[in-house]
Measured scan of single mutants.
Amino acid sequence: KLPPGWEKRMFRSNGTVYYFNHITNASQFERPSG
Rank of each mutant, 00 (worst) to 15 (best):
S27L: 14
K1D: 15
K8R: 12
P4E: 09
M10A: 11
M10H: 13
G15F: 10
G34A: 12
V17N: 05
P32E: 01
G34I: 12
F29G: 05
A26I: 14
N21G: 03
R31Y: 10
K1L: 13
Y19R: 00
T24V: 03
V17H: 07
P32R: 00
V17Y: 11
N14H: 10
K1A: 12
F11S: 13
T16Y: 15
S33H: 08
T16W: 09
F20N: 00
V17P: 10
T24E: 03
E7I: 07
S27P: 01
F29P: 03
F20S: 02
R9L: 05
Q28H: 08
Q28G: 07
S33M: 13
R12W: 13
I23L: 09
N14L: 09
P32T: 00
R31A: 08
N25Q: 12
S33F: 11
T24I: 04
F11D: 15
P4Y: 12
F11L: 15
F11R: 06
Y18K: 00
G15D: 03
I23Y: 09
G5S: 02
F20P: 04
S13I: 10
T16Q: 13
V17T: 07
R9A: 05
R31T: 08
R9E: 08
P32D: 02
N14E: 09
N14Q: 06
W6H: 02
T16K: 14
T24R: 06
F29N: 05
N21H: 04
Y18G: 03
V17D: 02
N21F: 07
N21W: 07
R9F: 09
G15W: 01
F29W: 10
A26Q: 15
E7D: 03
F20H: 10
H22M: 11
S33T: 13
P3M: 00
L2E: 15
Q28A: 07
S27N: 03
K8F: 11
F11H: 14
S13Q: 12
N25T: 07
I23Q: 06
S27K: 10
Y18V: 03
N25S: 08
G5F: 05
E30Y: 06
P4G: 06
S13H: 14
E30T: 11
G34E: 14
N21R: 02
Q28T: 10
Y19V: 00
F11Y: 14
R9Q: 05
S27Y: 15
W6Q: 01
R12V: 14
G15H: 11
N25V: 01
Y19I: 01
L2N: 01
A26G: 07
N25Y: 08
S13T: 14
P32N: 00
N25L: 12
K1V: 11
S33L: 11
G5M: 02
E30G: 06
I23G: 02
S27W: 15
S13G: 13
G5D: 05
F11G: 09
N21S: 03
N21E: 03
T24H: 02
L2Q: 00
H22E: 08
R31H: 12
K1W: 12
P32W: 01
F29V: 09
L2I: 06
S27T: 14
A26H: 10
N25M: 14
R9P: 04
S33W: 10
N25E: 09
F11K: 12
P32H: 02
N14F: 00
F11Q: 10
K8D: 07
I23R: 05
P4M: 08
V17G: 04
E7N: 03
R9S: 04
E30M: 05
P3V: 02
R9H: 08
K1Y: 11
M10R: 11
R9Y: 08
F29I: 13
E7T: 08
F20E: 02
N25I: 05
S33N: 13
T24L: 04
S27H: 12
G34C: 15
P3N: 01
L2D: 15
Y18F: 08
Q28V: 06
F29S: 09
Y18M: 04
N14S: 14
W6D: 03
I23F: 13
S33P: 12
F29R: 07
M10E: 14
W6S: 02
Y18L: 03
Y19Q: 00
Y19P: 01
H22T: 15
R12F: 13
W6V: 05
G34D: 12
R12E: 15
N21Q: 02
H22P: 08
N21I: 10
T16R: 13
L2W: 04
P32M: 01
L2A: 01
P4A: 10
F29D: 07
N25F: 10
F29A: 10
Y19M: 02
N14T: 14
W6I: 02
F11T: 12
Y18D: 05
N25R: 09
K1T: 12
G34R: 09
F20Y: 14
P4K: 06
F11M: 12
P4N: 11
P4I: 08
G5R: 03
P3S: 01
S33A: 09
R12K: 14
P4H: 07
E7R: 01
W6P: 00
Q28W: 03
F29L: 11
E30W: 07
E30K: 06
R9G: 02
G15R: 05
G34Y: 14
P3K: 02
R31K: 10
S13D: 14
M10Y: 15
R12S: 15
N25W: 07
I23E: 09
T16G: 11
Y19K: 00
P4V: 07
W6L: 02
K1M: 11
P32F: 01
F20V: 10
R9K: 11
E7K: 05
G15P: 00
Y18H: 02
F20T: 03
K1S: 11
E30N: 08
M10L: 13
N14M: 01
N14I: 04
N14D: 15
S27M: 15
S13E: 14
E7S: 06
S13L: 08
T24Y: 04
R31L: 10
T24S: 04
N25K: 13
R31S: 07
F20A: 05
Q28F: 04
G5A: 04
S33D: 11
L2T: 02
S27R: 11
M10T: 14
T16F: 08
G5C: 10
L2C: 00
G34F: 14
Y19W: 09
E7Y: 07
G5V: 03
T24W: 05
M10I: 15
Q28K: 09
S27F: 15
K8S: 05
G5Q: 04
W6E: 02
M10F: 14
G34N: 11
H22I: 15
T16P: 07
Y18P: 01
R12I: 14
I23K: 07
T16V: 13
H22L: 13
N14W: 08
H22W: 12
N21A: 00
G15M: 13
S13M: 05
S27A: 12
L2R: 02
K1F: 09
R31F: 15
K8E: 15
S13F: 12
E30I: 06
S27G: 04
P4T: 05
Q28I: 05
A26N: 11
G15A: 06
S33I: 12
G5T: 00
Y18E: 03
